[in-house]
Design a protein around this nucleic acid. Structure first.
Ligand SMILES: [Zn+2]
Ligand SMILES: [Zn+2]
Ligand SMILES: [Zn+2]
Ligand SMILES: [Zn+2]
Lengths: 137, 137
DNA sequence: CTAATTGCTCTAGCGACTAGAGGTTCAAGA
DNA sequence: TCTTGAACCTCTAGTCGCTAGAGCAATTAG
């Protein structure tokens, strides 16, 4: 049986975050000691690792809850799980595409300033005038 | 003189967002009509366009405020403005690098499931076991 | 003049935590 | 057994950049 602090050390998830996951119904309410402190077992440790891994991959709390519920029904078709993963991949690709546009513009803006004073600073001029940008963002 | 709605239409910034920028001290408190409604001029329109452009490039409110304050002192050196742009570029590049790692892992996770049920779904297995991942994330 | 639209302020909500207050329980040493 | 200090408990509020809504006042078109 682990205390919440020990579970935190073993998973790298901070103590208040574990309590937050319980509140969000990702973790089930665990057993308690006589003095009302949380006591966890091995299955909770595995679930928390699952949650942490899914969060590290950028999945939303709601998606993770759905995946956890699915994994409790091993005989059901896994189309929903596959869909969640594909949607997350698409979302990540969308964000990358958007950030690459920003990168292109910022590269120009951040490296083209040859002025010395604010009055002729390219950074300030570029921000004032979007027509200097190569494409939309 | 523009009303806040007209300013909104001309810049594409929503009305409550304009009021929010005023509250955050990016926009100065404008003149008011006899009935206490905001009235803007050309300079406020330009400032709002500046703010919108900077936000579109991902700059934080605090950085934008700093840039606006700088642009009021055209004779000062522009090192601070250049630094803010370079930091933003670095931040965007960092986020892209992180997202590319996620993309690699998610690509594998989302496309490798040949199972039909949750019990042998690769998505669920991959989330349960980080050692299946190629690199850290 | 009336009605529709737009404006005003204030408060609360989003997502995923994080920090702090104020109090209780646990574990180890004397 | 007692004491101390770390860890734990619940609850509330703050982060960021908006967005939504309530309940009212001002403007504008017909
Ligand atoms: Zn410069
Ligand atoms: Zn631009
Ligand atoms: Zn599957
Ligand atoms: Zn992994």
């Amino acid at each position: 049986m682990y205390s919440i602090g020990e579970l935190s050390r073993r998973t790298g998830v901070k103590v208040p975050t574990i309590r937050y996951y319980e509140q969000m119904r990702l973790m089930e309410a665990p057993e308690r000691s006589d003095g009302n402190q949380r006591r966890y077992g091995k299955s909770e440790l595995e679930r928390l690792a699952f949650i942490r891994h899914a969060r590290d991959l950028g999945l939303a709390i709601d998606s993770i809850r759905e995946l956890i519920e699915l994994s409790g029904h091993p005989d059901m078709p896994c189309a929903d799980a596959d869909r969640i993963a594909k949607e997350q991949l698409a979302s990540v690709r969308g964000r990358i595409a958007r950030l690459r546009k920003l990168e292109r513009e910022l590269e120009r803006i951040a490296t083209c300033c040859i002025g010395e004073t604010v009055g002729d600073c390219y950074v300030i001029r570029a921000l004032s005038d979007h027509t200097l940008c190569r494409d939309e963002h």
